[in-house]
């Protein structure tokens, strides 16, 4: 359940931003979760509910923007879209792919009051 640790990371970011940007309450949290990142969006949602209780983000809407996976195919020498790490290149069927995007995990923005 490293999603729990990651949600604590989200709360740390929120606490820092609350001090820096002076807000008292978070109404919504928007995350960008890459299709090839290490987390399951639903597990993040579940954990966030649990770890945000008693914080300024309690009951905040939790929105996830899923970012599609991207890779560079070494055979085709071009970027291709992949849904999972072990997917073959959709053009040539090969596995010589280097992931180039969709593996990030970011707090995109917050709606605050």
């Amino acid at each position: 359940m490293h999603e729990m640790a990651l949600c604590e990371g989200v709360l740390d970011i929120i606490a820092e931003e609350a001090t820096r940007q002076r807000f008292a309450r978070v109404r919504a949290v928007r995350l960008e979760i890459g299709a090839l990142s290490h987390v399951e969006p639903e597990a993040m949602r579940f954990c966030f509910d649990a770890v945000s209780r008693g914080t300024i983000a309690e009951s905040a809407r939790f929105e996830v923007i899923e970012v599609p996976g991207e890779a560079w195919c070494m055979n085709c020498s071009k970027p291709v879209a992949i849904a999972r790490r072990f997917d073959p290149c959709p053009a040539c069927g090969g596995y010589k792919l280097q992931v180039t995007g969709g593996d990030a995990l970011r707090v995109k923005d917050l709606e605050v009051v």
Binding site: L6, G9, I13, Q21, V107
Partner: peptide, 16 residues
Amino acid sequence: NARRIIEIERNILGKN
């Protein structure tokens, strides 16, 4: 009315 969107754009694993 202070309801506002704050852009954060921070990696969740940034601290680690």
